[in-house]
């Protein structure tokens, strides 16, 4: 049919069949990424803040809690499956996702856009902090550091500020991550539901930040407000 056309001209492509797109693996891996942020990482975070809260009761209880955790059965495989692998996956896949986005808050400085950018930076800070924290507490000291070791570490202003920044980053990333999760899994659809989800997630983020900082206070000031429980 195109015999009559002149060869030098720009040839529009002939009509062609366009099949429907089909799922690819990125959907699965993305969902896994967002899920690991909640379970098990988020769940572990809850547990971790909980056990560290014993520092607010007494040094002895903290030390006992700490050594109890060293004696759980199947310790290494449990740690690997529930902490190390999900953490590494969530961190590195997160960096991959980050590399595929191009932030534009200088042009579009809207709230949610700031959250998008903050989520990436806090994620990175949290990843580095957690990596260092795990290296020091789990591998360097074999998990045997007690209340006074931690207090000694936190007496260094440098370590102290690293902890404070780390805790704030983790709390933000977790809180905002919960909101992201409610979007990505279609839990909050309508505008009202999204707003409610944002309040709940924000409150959880703030709660973690406050509890985290109180735990730090417990070590820095040897402050045990719940000490009377143990008496």
């Amino acid at each position: 049919m195109s015999a009559k056309t002149v060869a030098t001209a720009e040839i529009p492509p002939e009509a062609a069949v366009v099949p429907a797109a089909v799922p690819d693996r990125s959907y699965f891996w993305d969902k896994i990424h967002s899920l690991t942020g909640i379970i098990p990482i988020g769940a572990f975070l809850v547990e971790h803040f909980w056990s560290n809260s014993y520092a607010l009761v007494s040094a002895d209880l903290y030390n006992r809690q700490s050594s109890d955790l060293q004696t759980i059965p199947w310790r290494v495989p449990v740690e690997a499956l529930l902490i190390w692998i999900p953490l590494l996956y969530h961190g590195f896949y997160g960096i991959y996702i980050w590399s595929r986005g191009k932030a534009n808050i200088s042009r579009y400085s809207y709230g949610a856009n700031w959250m998008y950018v903050m989520q990436r930076w806090t994620g990175l800070v949290a990843f580095v902090f957690i990596g260092w924290h795990v290296y020091v507490e789990r591998f360097l000291t074999q998990g045997r550091s007690n209340y006074f070791d931690v207090a000694a570490t936190l007496s260094h202003p440098l370590y102290l500020s690293f902890y404070v920044i780390g805790i704030l980053a983790v709390s933000f990333h977790f809180g905002n991550g919960l909101w992201q999760f409610s979007n990505k899994w279609g839990l909050a659809v309508g505008a009202h539901a999204q707003r409610k989800a944002a309040w709940v997630a924000g409150a959880i983020g703030v709660l973690f930040a406050v509890v985290g900082l109180l735990i730090v206070c417990a070590f820095v000031f040897h402050w045990q407000p719940f000490q009377f429980y143990a008496q």
């Binding site: 429907a20 797109a21 089909v22 799922p23 690819d24 990125s26 959907y27 993305d30 969902k31 996702i97 595929r100 986005g101 534009n104 579009y108 809207y110 949610a112 856009n113 959250m115 998008y116 989520q119 909101w179 992201q180 979007n183 990505k184």
Partner: peptide
């Protein structure tokens, strides 16, 4: 459609910057 939207460049790419 729901299969297609899980395909390359699909909904998984959205990270809720909400601009």
């Amino acid at each position: 459609r729901l299969r297609a939207v899980r395909g390359p460049g699909g909904i998984q790419e959205c990270d809720n910057a909400q601009n």
